[in-house]
Amino acid sequence: MDRMTMSLGGRVSEELHFSSVTSGASDDFEKVTNMAQRMVLQCGMSPKIGTISYTIDRGQDFTKPYSDHTALAIDEEIRRIVAECHERCKKLLIEKADQVELVAQELLTKEVITREDMIRLLGKRPFPNRNDAFDKYLASKSELEDKEEGETKP
């Protein structure tokens, strides 16, 4: 759900800040829809459909392994999940509008911003990374720079 919410950020931001939206988010919609389909059809992550797995790719067999009634329920669940992520993204962008503005202003001055720029602008993430290797890299890089500065001072 987090990844889907994040993927909708560009489109939702266009909806919030411009009078019309572009087709630039079509790839994001495809990804979000595919994630929602997998949640419902393969992972049993829909309370309405239940803990059952319907294989999406059935090779040359083009019949669906469920009824038309179930197909309708599947469509409704996929729409519900995407709509929830869309609403969640909209709420976050509104709630964090000040931080979004900081990042937008930075992007106007620099074509690319780094993770270090994001930390400088917004602070460290409020939760630990699953893979802290990059944090260790940044820490060792900072320690090395501090050590080099100490060696060059008279």
Rank of each mutant, 00 (worst) to 15 (best):
L107D: 01
L16F: 11
Q99F: 03
A25Y: 03
Y137A: 00
P47S: 06
I94D: 04
V21W: 06
A73R: 11
R88W: 13
C89A: 10
D75L: 10
V82D: 02
A36R: 02
A71N: 10
F62C: 10
I74F: 02
L72M: 11
I52H: 04
Q105S: 08
S7W: 06
G50D: 06
R88Q: 15
K96C: 07
S46M: 07
I52Y: 01
V12P: 05
K141W: 01
L121K: 03
G59D: 10
G24S: 11
I119C: 00
E143I: 02
P126N: 11
E84R: 14
K31P: 02
K136L: 09
A83P: 00
E95D: 13
R120A: 09
K141F: 00
T63Q: 12
E76F: 04
D61G: 03
I113N: 05
I74Q: 03
D68I: 07
E84T: 08
K90T: 08
L108Q: 10
P126R: 10
K110E: 08
G9D: 00
R58L: 08
R11T: 01
T5L: 13
Y137T: 02
K64A: 14
Q60I: 14
V40D: 04
C85K: 13
P47A: 04
T51L: 12
L92N: 11
R125I: 02
Q105E: 12
T114W: 01
G44S: 07
R130H: 11
V103S: 01
M39H: 06
T114I: 01
Y54S: 03
D57C: 09
H17F: 11
S19N: 12
R120G: 01
L41T: 04
E87G: 12
G44C: 06
S142R: 08
Q60W: 10
R38P: 01
C89Y: 06
C43H: 15
C85H: 06
A71S: 10
H86R: 13
R80P: 02
T5K: 15
D75Q: 14
D98I: 11
L144F: 09
L72Y: 08
R115H: 10
S53C: 13
P47K: 06
S13I: 00
F127N: 02
M4I: 09
L93Y: 00
S19Q: 12
R58M: 08
H86E: 10
M45P: 03
Q60V: 13
K141I: 00
T33P: 00
L122W: 01
E95G: 07
R38D: 05
E76Y: 05
L107W: 07
T70H: 04
I81V: 09
D117T: 11
